[in-house]
Design a protein around this nucleic acid. Structure first.
Lengths: 267, 267
DNA sequence: GGCCTGCGTTCACAGGATTTTCACGGCTCA
DNA sequence: TGAGCCGTGAAAATCCTGTGAACGCAGGCC
């Protein structure tokens, strides 16, 4: 089950011997490694699309904890591994609670460091779902990821990049309620800032382009206080609004909630 | 967001001193811990619905590696942490590559062990796109934490956020009597003000949406002067005690029918 | 370079949905 | 039987979402 994965790794460490030895091994393993001599803003790390970040606390200097915290908050999907020569239990606990994934004591063997990076990165396999397959069809909607285009019934939708990625995510998670934070995380690639309304705005744009008439939204449903759910109503959907409420439960049981929950058994 | 996560942990270790100390801390943190003296089949672990498994390799004896491999294959969503007194780099690398998430050297500080378990669970959860656990099924009720949705028999319940979180807590504590303070603490995330009736109001809302009208409530039972208990079975003495114990999962039986009060660490 | 255009982001506000509070009456238990 | 507790309906307060519009930025064009 352990398919070889290509890992994009950045190392922040001034111990050039260690970095050199490690980079040789990672290169042999086919990883992409980037050596950084000092801390760089989390925003720049976002652009690097890393799987993992290995850093020596001593390089960070004064604001090491603050930096760690910003990193973990901004890039919750990034595997963060700290290595230090000396550290106390309290420090390690603090770091791990802050969001660090692993904490290694130096001196350490490159092979073990790599194994730990792999362990931490294993999760990436599934999280950023590989979405290359054939066209996705949901109701009257058809999404062609390869062509970067979506079609609804008669014509093609003219979607911008973000709109398309959002739609793709929604359609890919048909039937599931997605939290705003999760949407933002997966479409934008980093954590949502407090008070950010971008998701809402893009949902509106999508709705405008996607849905015909608007007594009730047809594809994108709001879950108050939570997020949004993408689900096409049963075809032929001429339910009168006042009847809809009565009918909804039985309706949904048939069409709506065939939502497969493959959740636990990933087998 | 909500409070810290409740972790369901099993420990396979014969070092009773270590296990005892750890269990005290985990209990204080509100985790559910189960101590096992020897390896048990992966299938039985599945039933425990664990977040994490902490094990000492030496307890496993001969077939330690085979057992580890089976565990990791059968329960890909379980966080596995190995702790050993002595180990070589090769052993650690082998374990980590096999699917083990973290490898800790003994002696180790309980607090750090817990922090590492948290880190591993956090990561596991993220990898599934914030999926907490598989669908929880209680009687005719099914709760999908990942989707913020609950289904009862024929259709899906339309629950608000608080309602859902309350239901989730209740179902997760099936059979236990929960004090109002404890409920409030764990759903709202902070202490309940004197005279606050919010819990009662939300219990009513849940009952309205959950239960068919009948003389007695079917799922949520009131314990006068104490709180509420969630149980699809008839209250008190519907089934014989020994059967009841058999029926509930082994993890839950230990806490079964005992009052849980608000001994939660604030913050 | 300067201008135009399209895109993504941010802001403010109104309308609604949800949550909290309150009052009253029925219920439980000593 | 009485005091305290719980269920309930509804008002009040709070919070969330939909929406229009403005802003800043980058790329294309003259």
């Amino acid at each position: 089950m352990n398919t070889q994965q290509t890992i994009r790794l950045a190392v922040i460490d001034d111990d050039s011997g260690f970095v050199t030895v490690l980079s040789k091994r990672t290169e042999m393993a086919g990883w992409q490694q980037r050596a950084l001599s000092s801390a760089i803003p989390p925003e720049e790390l976002v652009a690097m699309k890393l799987n993992a970040l290995l850093l020596d606390l001593t390089v960070l200097g004064e604001d090491a904890w603050g930096y760690l915290e910003r990193i973990c908050a901004t890039l919750p999907d990034l595997g963060v591994i700290v290595c230090t020569g000396q550290s106390t239990v309290a420090q390690r606990v603090r770091g791990l609670r802050l969001g660090v994934d692993d904490w290694i004591a130096k001196p350490c063997h490159p092979e073990e460091v790599m194994a730990r990076i792999e362990a931490v990165s294993r999760r990436r396999r599934r999280s950023r779902g590989e979405i290359e397959a054939g066209p996705v069809v949901v109701g009257e909607l058809e999404i062609r990821a390869d062509q970067f285009q979506a079609f609804v019934g008669d014509g093609s939708l003219d979607l911008t990049r973000r709109e398309f990625e959002l739609l793709q995510l929604l359609a890919d998670s048909k039937g599931q309620v997605l939290e705003r934070e999760a949407i933002y995380q997966r479409v934008w690639g980093y954590a949502m800032a407090h008070g950010d309304r971008s998701v809402d705005v893009f949902i509106r744009k999508l709705r405008q382009k996607l849905e015909k008439r608007s007594s009730r939204w047809r594809y994108i449903h709001t879950h108050f206080g939570v997020g949004y759910r993408f689900d096409p109503e049963p075809p032929g959907g001429g339910i009168a609004p006042e009847l809809a409420e009565e009918a909804s439960s039985s309706m949904e049981s048939q069409a709506d909630s065939q939502v497969v929950h493959s959740s636990f058994t990933a087998g």
